[in-house]
């Protein structure tokens, strides 16, 4: 297998086995370890990445299925060392503790707010049901996402002001 896709704006190549999941391709072949792998069967949400604008579980997708796609991982959410407004809201609200689930929650919330900048608390809770966090009790995460909505209004797509 030899294929290309775009990862966080740069073209990357993958030449591994067809059975490789996108999650393992990102971590082991491309060295992008921001994407965390929890359950490896689509339950925990930790490995969530954004493929062609949509949040998906990268453990439930083969790397070959990403051929030609635009893939965004947590590494691609901010430019340089500065936190994105969403990430800054997570820091402000203490929306993480151990941080294992955080990359999957950030990518999920980024995709959600990009599509639905006015998502209400109920919608955010509904969407977050696909991500397991064992530290925070979720409430600070919901507060952070609600707070970050302003950065997605008026087509800003989560960019710093």
């Amino acid at each position: 297998m030899a294929l290309q896709f775009t990862l966080n704006g740069k073209t990357v190549e993958f030449g591994g086995e067809a059975r490789t999941t996108l999650a393992d391709c990102l971590r082991h072949h491309l060295g992008q370890t921001g994407t965390h792998v929890g359950c490896e069967h689509g339950v925990c949400g930790a490995c969530t990445v954004i493929v062609d604008g949509e949040a998906v579980r990268s453990c439930l997708m083969l790397a070959v299925q990403a051929e030609g796609s635009q893939v965004t991982t947590v590494e691609g959410l901010s430019e340089g060392e500065d936190l994105s407004p969403l990430q800054a809201a997570f820091r402000k609200h203490h929306a993480l503790q151990c941080g294992f689930c955080t990359p999957g929650i950030l990518t999920t919330a980024h995709a959600l707010l990009t599509h639905e900048p006015d998502a209400d608390e109920e919608r955010i809770r509904h969407v977050l049901s696909g991500n397991i966090c064992r530290c925070t009790g979720y409430l600070p995460i919901i507060e952070a996402i609600l707070d970050a909505r302003a950065a997605y209004a008026d087509g800003r797509r989560g960019k710093p002001a």
Partner: peptide
Amino acid sequence: VAHYQVRNR
């Protein structure tokens, strides 16, 4: 049916 991320695929 399932969760947000699964519903996307």
